[in-house]
Design a protein around this nucleic acid. Structure first.
Lengths: 127, 127
DNA sequence: AGTTGTCAACGAAAAAATTCGTATTTCTTG
DNA sequence: CAAGAAATACGAATTTTTTCGTTGACAACT
């Protein structure tokens, strides 16, 4: 009777998406190879995950070759926006300020990056 | 044969944590009441979740009263930092800049908040 | 043609997360 | 004290997520 309804990618699905974002459209074998740098994962496990993701509409499959080629159905940008927006509500009750604060405390950020973030703030303010 | 150990709270566990952060230490009944504003949830379901969370060490239970009183075992700050740090790695390959950018595009943020975020950046730069 | 290697399809099973019914304990009130 | 209310404990069922073994298709090579 478990009943989640969010269309959020699961843990392993996100791993696959991250690999596809990094490498562009590719085959199960390549994804599985990248997967194994993180954690031992059987080939058929990766295959099954990607088949399920295709059924769910998370991936798109090109079957014109014997080795099917997969790519995300939704852009990296949209997925990331959805994920961070979701965390914003679920863990920060909607406070972007707090989320940003925690993010910057969780990870050391270079001065250069800080500068770019500041520029982004300026642009947002202008708009 | 599913996932290994993740020290990350699950979906429902996070819902409960958020309620406890907002209300302070409280009883199962109160948590369940708040829970039902989001989604229909039986009392025993909430109870069971909180019992499991106590076993896991996520919550601390005060049994001195008949109505046990629960509170988070870890601070809101640490949990949030862990969650956002985790998302940072899993979905943004460690780029805090990108995460902040997506966060600010996912949610409209007031000028006042933007100003406070800027101040935070200044302090980080100083340090 | 037979062997070998690679790949997708399928089904099943294990693990984790979620849900709730029932039993039991404890308190309250008449 | 008895009866009912309210709370916790226990156990099990259900759903989702993750994993992989097995099979069959297909191609390349001998």
């Amino acid at each position: 009777m478990a009943r989640p309804k969010t269309s959020r990618p699961t843990e392993r699905e996100l791993t696959i998406l991250r690999i596809l974002w990094g490498q562009g459209p590719t085959t199960v074998r390549e994804v599985n190879k990248a997967m194994n740098k993180d954690r031992d994962t059987g080939y058929t496990t990766t295959l099954k995950l990607m088949q399920i993701m295709t059924e769910k509409g998370i991936l798109i499959r090109d079957e014109s070759q014997r080795q099917h080629v997969y790519k995300p159905a939704i852009t990296e940008e949209k997925t990331q926006k959805q994920l961070v927006g979701d965390l914003l509500e679920r863990a920060f009750s909607g406070s972007a300020e707090k989320l940003v604060m925690r993010a910057l405390s969780a990870k050391k950020v270079s001065a250069k990056e800080l500068e770019r973030i500041r520029k982004m703030l300026d642009e947002l303010k202008g708009a």
